[in-house]
Write a protein that binds this DNA or RNA. Structure first.
Length: 231
DNA sequence: TCATTAAGTATGC
DNA sequence: GCATACTTAATGA
């Protein structure tokens, strides 16, 4: 395996306060692995043996209900830690991590977690900030599920994707990884049929442009209006 | 308002 | 040419 360059980690929040030799140490302890799209990096309930940093690609974090239906809890963008069960003092992963596109991730054994937290300035605080942010997002989604109509929830979900992993294109902002209507319904507690109808209507209104597995938001401000208290 | 059923078309390996 | 993605209409809770 080629030696990884320190520049891979220098800009990233968990490592932003570290000097090059420290980043070198961390890299030398890591394993890097490439994953095809649709691969499970780890599965819900399995022993949390490693924690991960996504370098490239996108990850879907999926919870499975006892009835077997899937709920997409959140997406991970490049530069973010995931599989950080040790931060929560869990010894199993609380959810499954599936690659939404071809991805590249570093990982470390969980036994290094406490050492990292103690030794490396800013690592622990950044990790807890990440956990806090995800918790906050999930709370707003719970409120949405309880109080908002489907159209508003789907609009809000699309906006979150745009904000977290949008890519500028000529006509607007594109979700940077393949996403199906089924995926969107799994994020919003709806059905692919309803999502399909909504996207078709928004397409007619010029708010989005979508093709198979690709969605470009052409009028984000109008989506913001749709996601608000009243349509 | 929305899920479900059902029956179709489109797309891409 | 097949599986998967997507669309649309009808029905009914």
């Amino acid at each position: 395996m080629p030696k990884l360059d320190e520049s891979l980690l220098t800009g990233l929040p968990p490592f932003s306060l570290l000097d090059r030799p420290q980043i070198r140490e961390i890299l030398d302890l890591s394993v890097s692995q490439r994953y095809d799209a649709g691969t499970a990096i780890f599965r819900e309930g399995h022993d949390a043996e490693r924690f991960y940093l996504l370098l490239d690609g996108f990850i879907r974090v999926i919870k499975t209900t006892p009835e077997g239906e899937q709920i997409i809890a959140l997406h991970i963008a490049p530069g973010q830690l995931f599989g950080i069960a040790p931060a929560l003092r869990r010894d199993t992963y609380p959810a499954t991590a599936m690659t939404a596109s071809e991805s590249l991730a570093l990982s470390w054994p969980v036994r290094l977690w406490d050492g990292f937290s103690a030794k490396y300035e800013g690592f622990a605080t950044e990790c807890y900030r990440t956990v806090g942010e995800r918790l906050g997002e999930m709370q707003t989604r719970i409120v949405e599920l309880a109080t908002q109509a489907v159209e508003q929830r789907v609009a809000a979900a699309l906006l979150r994707l745009v904000n977290q992993s949008g890519r500028r294109v000529e006509t607007g902002i594109e979700i940077a990884f393949p996403i199906t209507r089924q995926n969107l319904s799994d994020m919003t507690g709806s059905t692919l049929h309803t999502v399909s109808r909504l996207l078709s209507a928004w397409e007619r209104d010029g708010i989005v442009h979508s093709t198979r597995k690709h969605i470009v938001v052409t009028a984000p401000h109008r989506l913001v209006l749709l996601s608000g208290a009243q349509g």
